[in-house]
Design a protein around this nucleic acid. Structure first.
Length: 263
DNA sequence: CGAGACTTTCCTGATT
DNA sequence: TAATCAGGAAAGTCTC
């Protein structure tokens, strides 16, 4: 595509920065200040997470373990990272049932990770798929230390037994949602028309399609094809039809995680 | 291998 | 006229 091959470093800094080799991997390069302040140290240190980051983390764990997010009692985790880190194993079990041990293990793992690598920046975390980059890719693979409790070990093993359902990490509507939720990553591609109602509009339809294609390793993706997939969402009520307005869609009852109140 | 979910591709026709 | 919208049909991809 000409946009890619002709993109100069300057243009990549503006509207075409998506066109670099690795999907999203250009972000730290393009938005160094933002990326460094965003990624380090807050997201690596759960005790400093905001409520929204806690929510993102929950989503992340659900995605990783392929658990249906609708079964997760998110309301029990309306807290910031400091509060989250202070929860006991029993607190997690009370708040999330069977999921509690998994969540407890995850957060414990994160806390260990921070302690183990006092200087997190020394650890390399290749971002081949920054779309799911909020936490998981930066967590070193650590096993429970011998000293950890029996229940902690059980939670570890249980977690790794959870069935996978969506290994690719994201569907189209989630991809779209996350562009909306993180406009700073890809400015000017899609914008909210009505934030409360979940109405949004494509500003650069072909660029979004290219970005989606990049994620799916499909350089021939077009808005025409992407929009066909979007239309299939109407039936599943992930999207609602918005009549008479070009490039405008609306999240439906089955779309999760876009509401401001969920932050 | 088969089934199912989720697109991707292509197409015809309508609308803006 | 070009871009977008609507869906049908069928193929492709991936996981279980």
């Amino acid at each position: 595509m000409s946009l890619i091959s002709n993109a100069t470093p300057d243009s990549q800094l503006t509207s075409h920065h998506w066109a670099s080799t690795n999907f999203y991997a250009d972000i730290p390069m393009v938005m160094t200040g933002y990326a460094s302040s965003r990624l380090w140290p807050h997201e690596s240190q759960p005790q400093f997470w905001s409520k929204y980051q806690v929510w993102e983390w929950l989503q992340q764990v659900m995605d990783i373990n392929q658990i249906d997010a609708s079964n997760v009692p998110f309301q029990n985790f309306d807290m910031d990272g400091h509060q989250l880190c202070n929860l006991t194993y029993q607190d997690f079990v009370h708040a999330a049932g069977d999921l509690g041990p998994i969540l407890f293990h995850r957060i414990t793992q994160l806390k260990w990770a921070v302690e183990i690598s006092c200087n997190f920046s020394e650890v390399s975390y290749p971002q081949t798929d920054g779309y799911d980059s909020s936490i998981q890719p930066r967590v070193p693979a650590v096993s429970p230390p011998p000293s950890c409790s029996h229940e902690m070990k059980m939670s570890y093993h249980r977690q790794h037994q959870v069935k996978k359902h969506n290994p690719r990490g994201s569907h189209l509507w989630e991809f779209i949602r996350d562009i909306l939720l993180h406009p700073e990553r890809n400015p000017g591609l899609i914008k909210w028309e009505d934030r409360t109602e979940g109405v949004f509009r494509f500003l650069k339809s072909e660029e979004v399609a290219q970005l989606w294609g990049k994620k799916k390793n499909n350089s021939s993706m077009t808005y025409e094809k992407l929009s066909r997939a979007m239309r299939y969402y109407y039936k599943r009520e992930i999207l609602e039809r918005v009549d008479g307005r070009r490039l405008v869609y609306k999240f439906g009852r089955n779309a999760r995680g876009w509401k401001e109140s969920e932050k």
